[in-house]
C-alpha cells in the first residue's frame, strides 16, 4: 500500500477551497432570494453591456479555415518537437537514429504534400 498521507494537506486545501468558493457563490444567492423580492422583467433579464443594449450574440463564429490552419500547425509543430531530443542524442543513436528520423521526416513531407495538394494551405 503506497503511502498517500503526504498528499493529505493538498486534499484538505482542496476541500477548504471548494467549501469557501461554494459559500461565496451560493450564500448571496440564498440570502437575496430569502430577503429580496423576485420580479423578473424582460429588461432585468437582458444582458448588461456597459449600459448599451447588446448588439449581437456573444458567441461568434470563426471561419473554419482557422481551425484547419491551427490543426496543421499543431501537427507540424509537435512533430518538429521530436527533432530536439533526436538532435541531442544523435551521437548515441548513430546512423540508425539518423535513418529513422529521415524516414519520419519523409512521411511528414508526404503528409505536407498531401495537405498542399488538396488545398488545405490555401486561404481562398
Amino acid at each position: 500500500m503506497t503511502d498517500l498521507s503526504q498528499y493529505l494537506p493538498i486534499l484538505l486545501f482542496l476541500v477548504v477551497a471548494l467549501a469557501l468558493s461554494s459559500a461565496f457563490v451560493f450564500l448571496p444567492m440564498g440570502v437575496s432570494r430569502l430577503t429580496g423580492t423576485y420580479k423578473p422583467t424582460e429588461a432585468k433579464l437582458a444582458e448588461y453591456e456597459c449600459g448599451f443594449p447588446a448588439f449581437e450574440d456573444s458567441r461568434s463564429q470563426f471561419d473554419v479555415r482557422f481551425y484547419l490552419v491551427a490543426i496543421l500547425f499543431i501537427i507540424f509543430d509537435l512533430e518538429a518537437a521530436f527533432l530536439f531530443p533526436w538532435a541531442v542524442s544523435l551521437g548515441e543513436t548513430g546512423w540508425i537514429g539518423w535513418g529513422t528520423m529521415m524516414l519520419f521526416l519523409f512521411e511528414l513531407v508526404i503528409g505536407f504534400i498531401y495537405a498542399w495538394k488538396v488545398g488545405a494551405l490555401e486561404w481562398e
Binding site: 512521411e107 508526404i110 503528409g111 504534400i113 498531401y114 495538394k117 488538396v118
Partner: peptide, 9 residues
C-alpha cells in the same frame, strides 16, 4: 503513403 499521394492527385 503511396495511396495518399495518389489520392491527392
Amino acid at each position: 503513403l503511396a495511396l495518399l499521394l495518389l489520392a491527392a492527385w
